[in-house]
Design a protein around this nucleic acid. Structure first.
Length: 245
DNA sequence: CCAGACGTTGTT
DNA sequence: GTCTGG
DNA sequence: CCAGACGTTGTT
DNA sequence: GTCTGG
């Protein structure tokens, strides 16, 4: 699973990294932390008429058959993630994975480790890169009441690599991270199922960076977790003690 | 054929 | 809307 | 989709 | 082998 993400970059930097235009750049501000369950707007990279572009889309895929906004919001909370293992079979995803793939820029995501009865949050990022891409699928939904269309997306997950299964030790999942060298290919709309599946492997453990963070993001009472400090390293006293064993 | 599902697994 | 399970 | 049916109606 | 019910 992956429900907590960050994108701590200005629109200009994102646009430069992907060499793609970002029309709605003025509406974007860096995201230190956002939870999928709040259906945040996120810049995503996709291909339209063979041109790569960045558009703001909402996390939480709304299936085309959602009858109204209330139903859309109910449905999408279970469509924040899509399992790579079954994405070609599920009716909510199968068309999108073939024709509507996107890249979700990230500067690191958050995951919890269960130790005895407690959960400790971690910030997870990649070695030697500031921005990386998580694989996703997009859908465009028409609200029949307002006649307006809404772009939404789901983040693809895969089994955790040996490093991340120690952190996310309850479900052992991780986001499907696309190698920099595969980004163009992922956005190619002419791929076969086999070609897509070949890119669906857990990112190597050696490239993963992680550290524990404060429970700022864990606390429902926190009014706004979208602050720079959410990913600042924070060492739990009991973790320090563990090192002596 | 047709009713019912359609999805994932949070910090609660 | 489309697929699946029974 | 697939398991299970697939048939008729004596007078006994 | 083909149809039907679920």
């Amino acid at each position: 699973m992956c429900y907590h993400n960050s994108l701590k970059k200005e629109a200009k930097e994102i646009s430069e990294y992907y060499e793609a235009s970002f029309e709605e750049r003025d509406l974007f501000t860096p995201i230190f932390h956002a939870a999928g369950f709040s259906f945040p707007h996120w810049p995503i990279v996709c291909t339209e008429a063979s041109i790569r572009k960045i558009e703001l889309s909402e996390w939480g895929l709304i299936p085309s058959w959602a009858a109204n906004l209330m139903e859309a919001n109910r449905l999408r909370s279970t469509l924040l993630n899509a399992r790579s293992e079954t994405i070609f079979e599920k009716i909510s995803f199968k068309n999108n994975i073939m024709q509507q793939r996107c890249l979700i820029p990230s500067t690191g995501y958050f995951e919890w480790q269960q130790v005895q009865k407690k959960k400790y949050p971690y910030f997870i990022s990649l070695r030697n890169v500031e921005i990386f891409s998580i694989a996703g699928i997009i859908n465009t939904w028409m609200d029949t009441e307002t006649k307006k269309t809404k772009s939404s997306f789901a983040l693809i997950t895969t089994s955790a690599n040996s490093c991340l299964e120690k952190i996310h030790n309850t479900k052992k999942r991780m986001p499907l991270i696309v190698h920099k060298s595969d980004e163009g290919k992922w956005l190619d709309n002419n791929l076969t199922e086999t070609e897509i599946k070949r890119m669906m492997t857990p990112y190597p453990s050696e490239e993963i960076l992680f550290h524990t963070v404060s429970n700022l993001i864990s606390n429902f009472a926190t009014k706004n977790s979208n602050r720079a400090e959410v990913s600042t390293p924070y060492v739990y006293p009991e973790f320090q003690q563990q090192r002596f064993f």
